[in-house]
């Protein structure tokens, strides 16, 4: 087990290295990646601007509390774009063109190889930097102590958020084994993810429950600031730890099921 983990860590390191080489070779694409994400950051900042101009608490959250939530969402959006977006985006095309055949023959996990190979840090740079700035400002002005417990809890749920983001966005891609094209479903999953643009507390309780327990979209970015604000109850703590494991198992099982439908068309 340890040997396998080490092997995959080495391979992932190679993915990262190759991506960096590619990035340095195509510098214009790197600049454009940064530029586009600055555009998206402008949209997120317009939400921050509106919340601060209103100036009152929304459903028990002060503007600085909300800034903490929006900052966490911004960080996570950057991590998603950098680590998963391009892999998931080209995944249906691998099935449509039959190019998946080449990857099936590789002596590594097909899921690992096709869903984690491409990393583009240009998409992460503005979001992660902008998000961290927002979190630090929101954190300080919300009067949260910078204790090890708070910081460790915040970082832990960022990690859990990354795992859940992987699962939530990979699930619709698996439909490509049956439907080939997934554009429509992608729009819907992106739309659902954008609910994190604002803290889950502003939504209807039914939406909060569905986004927590049914498809844990809210867990990806809401639990980190909630830990920092001491608003996470024991049930939420347990679900926060269990859900990424559960969803990783579900995604793995569905992956195996979906792969049986692969017909290797066009190859």
């Amino acid at each position: 087990m340890r040997k396998t983990l080490h092997r995959y860590a080495v391979i992932y390191h190679l993915f990262l290295k190759n991506s960096l080489i590619y990035m340095m070779e195509y510098r214009v694409n790197f600049m454009f990646g940064v530029l586009v994400e600055i555009g998206f950051l402008a949209i997120k900042l317009s939400y921050v601007y509106v919340v601060f101009r209103i100036g009152t608490d929304l459903n028990g959250l002060s503007p600085h509390n909300i800034l903490l939530f929006i900052g966490t969402f911004t960080i996570m959006a950057g991590l998603y774009s950098a680590l998963f977006f391009f892999n998931f985006n080209r995944f249906p095309e691998l099935i449509r063109s039959g190019d998946l055949d080449i990857y099936v023959t590789k002596p590594v996990s097909l899921q690992f190889f096709t869903t984690l190979r491409m990393i583009d840090i240009s998409f992460a740079v503005p979001n992660v930097i902008g998000g961290i700035v927002m979190v630090v400002i929101g954190w300080q002005n919300s009067g949260i102590s910078a204790s090890i417990g708070h910081i460790a809890g915040f970082v832990l749920f960022i990690g859990i958020g990354v795992v859940l983001t992987y699962c939530i966005f990979l699930l619709p891609q698996l439909l490509a084994f049956w439907t080939v094209r997934t554009n429509g479903i992608n729009d819907i999953s992106n739309g659902l993810y954008d609910f994190n643009q604002m803290p889950m507390q502003i939504y209807h309780p039914y939406i909060q429950k569905a986004g927590t327990f049914l498809l844990p979209v809210f867990l990806t970015t809401n639990y980190s600031p909630m830990v920092a604000l001491d608003r996470l109850g024991p049930v939420e703590w347990i679900w926060g730890i269990v859900s990424p494991i559960l969803f990783l198992i579900i995604v793995r099982l569905l992956w195996k099921l979906a792969l049986r439908n692969y017909t290797s068309a066009s190859s």
């Binding site: 009152t56 459903n59 729009d187 739309g191 659902l192 954008d194 604002m198």
Partner: peptide
């Protein structure tokens, strides 16, 4: 039609945002 359907999400986000704003002020 699908891209039109995807408008529903930003509309819902803003609906709840403005509902909270009007309730709180």
């Amino acid at each position: 039609m699908l891209s039109l359907a995807s408008c529903v999400f930003p509309i819902l986000i803003q609906f709840f945002l403005w509902r909270s704003v009007f309730n709180s002020t």
